[in-house]
């Protein structure tokens, strides 16, 4: 039996107990199996594990190895087969037995994780199998970014710079795991599922708890395993879409009731801690939470007297005593 060795070249070596990656990597052997020594980690940057695998120690010759790898979600009941993949997609990689297979050159910057298996068949130089297929199992999980890193990245998102200045507060609120005193958690910060993707029942994933309930923007594998991909979609697509919808709602009212609208422009919303948000921004945040249609959240009564045409009706967020927008404002009290 020839030994097989899987190595992560960029194994995060400087993590806090809650899984926050403070930077620094080294080489680490990933053992075959499903225990704690069989985990390769996505770094906090995030960067996929740079993996290489080899049969023997490089001194064998005169044989080839046919390699391929498969991955599937840790939670198939939630993700189905959405995160399944085979690397390479349709073929095997045949290399001399003296060479390691540098797996990451086949997935590059595409993020994935979960239960992984490297399959290999040792062959003679004519491609005849010399032994049955071998399998090397391991898992890929992830480390979290430093709060400053996540905060700065989200604030620099194109639409966030100009408009969604509170997007980082949403991410912080959505992904906080207060039990572990951890924020910006793409992956769990403790417990029996530590370093698994941060999942919120029934459909939320990652740093923004991206959620495709009711035909929303799909939650892809990349969003489950990369906080940057998750943030990009949340800010540039979902939140910007909510903001545009809120803006269009107010625009529709303005088009139809221009006189009344001019006399009484939409009122700002002041949260419990005194933070003031423009109407469009408060509506955008509440829409992200799905609190209700715009017209029930901020009602406009054009036939009422001047000064009495608008009314906020923000409901408390689920399992909460404050509206969602207030909780976001609280998270924004302290930076990052």
């Amino acid at each position: 039996m020839v030994p097989v060795t899987l190595t992560q070249l960029n194994y995060p070596t400087n993590c806090l107990p809650d899984g926050t990656d403070q930077g620094g990597t080294g080489s680490n052997v990933i053992c075959c199996g499903t225990n704690s020594s069989s985990v390769a980690y996505i770094t906090g940057d995030p960067v996929m594990p740079q993996l290489q695998i080899q049969v023997g120690n490089g001194s064998l010759s005169g044989m080839n190895v046919a390699w391929w790898m498969t991955a599937t979600s840790d939670r198939p009941s939630l993700r189905g087969t959405n995160d399944d993949l085979r690397i390479p997609a349709n073929t095997n990689v045949v290399l001399s037995i003296s060479q390691p297979w540098e797996i990451d050159s086949y997935y590059g910057t595409n993020f994935f994780g979960g239960l992984c298996t490297v399959h290999y068949i040792i062959q003679d130089i004519n491609g005849n199998s010399l032994a049955p297929e071998g399998q090397y199992q391991f898992v890929i999980r992830g480390r979290n970014p430093l709060p400053n890193t996540a905060h700065n990245y989200i604030q620099a998102e194109p639409f966030a710079v100009s408009t969604l200045y509170y997007a980082w507060g949403i991410a912080k609120h959505e992904s906080a795991q207060d039990k572990y005193n951890a924020i910006y958690c793409q992956f769990n910060a403790g417990g029996s599922t530590m370093a698994f993707p941060n999942y919120g029942y029934p459909n939320g994933w990652g740093i923004f708890q991206r959620d495709d309930t009711g035909g929303g923007i799909p939650v892809t594998t990349g969003q489950v395993y990369s906080w940057k991909v998750n943030s990009d979609v949340a800010v540039q697509q979902e939140l910007s879409q909510k903001w545009n919808s809120a803006n269009n709602y107010l625009g529709n009212l303005q088009n139809n009731y221009s006189t009344q609208f001019q006399q009484d422009p939409p009122p700002s919303y002041t949260t419990g801690n005194g933070t003031v948000f423009a109407a469009v921004d408060a509506l955008c945040m509440e829409a992200y939470n799905g609190a209700g249609s715009f017209s029930t959240l901020l009602s406009f009564y054009p036939s009422n007297a001047h000064g009495h045409r608008w009314a906020w009706h923000l409901p408390n967020a689920p399992q909460d005593t404050e509206p969602y927008v207030s909780r976001v404002a609280e998270r924004m009290n302290t930076s990052p």
Binding site: D211, T213, G214, G215, G216, K242, A287, N289, G290, P318
Partner: peptide, 13 residues
């Protein structure tokens, strides 16, 4: 009746 993506995480409107 509802539309795709008309709502949020609490559900469709």
């Amino acid at each position: 009746l509802s539309l795709n993506d008309y709502g949020g995480r609490q559900g469709n409107y």
